[in-house]
Design a protein around this nucleic acid. Sequence first.
DNA 1: ACGGGGATTTTCT
DNA 2: GAAAATCCCCGTG
Length: 215
Amino acid sequence: MPDTSRSARLSRRFFDRPTPTVARELLGKALIRRIAGQLLGGLIVETEAYLSSGDLASHSTRGLTRSNAAMFDRFGTLYVYPIHAKHCMNVVTGRVGEGSAVLIRAIEPVWGLEIMMDHRGTDQLRQLTRGPARLCQALQIDREHDRIDLLTSEEVWISQGCTLKSEIISTARIGISAARDLPLRFFLDGNWFVSGTAREHHNRPSPEDRLWRSR
DNA sequence: ACGGGGATTTTCT
DNA sequence: GAAAATCCCCGTG
């Protein structure tokens, strides 16, 4: 069982690599949120890369605005944006002014299950963090956390997680209308907590397919 | 000031 | 599968 309190945060240079590389390498890492001394979070099982150039689906494609400014900050910064009265979170991968990031689409819930259930208003484990807005609601991450530095924050960080047990699959990204041809979505094949419908998976997810189980 | 769309989720048929 | 819910934010006038 991964011990988050002792495992080290990812280094700054982890995020200073090509965006698809960071997206792929984030799979299996631990996303941790601390609220009033309590740790919540889980293991990352699905990500998407959004590029600084040649990517019409990226929020940075039309330049810097007030709402996407965090995406142009330095690698290791959190970019949180609102959508449909909810929020989604990204990790910035570019240098200052570049505008590239990795969207965290799903985590396997591991720590603080009851608190996350309370935040989400459900006790269904599979619904807790399966989807980018669901996981933000579970972790209580919103615009207040935009531009937070994952290397120094006491509220949110990412640390070394698990050894992967399943293959990494890459497909087109979900929920976008532009740049549908780019294979920039990465997920753990068959994992129970990966988002999307059946046709957006490779092998069918199964309840037993997890990175970590309590016992 | 106004209008429309969005890297979503939930609910209904 | 389709449509509603729901609100922030940018572009236009």
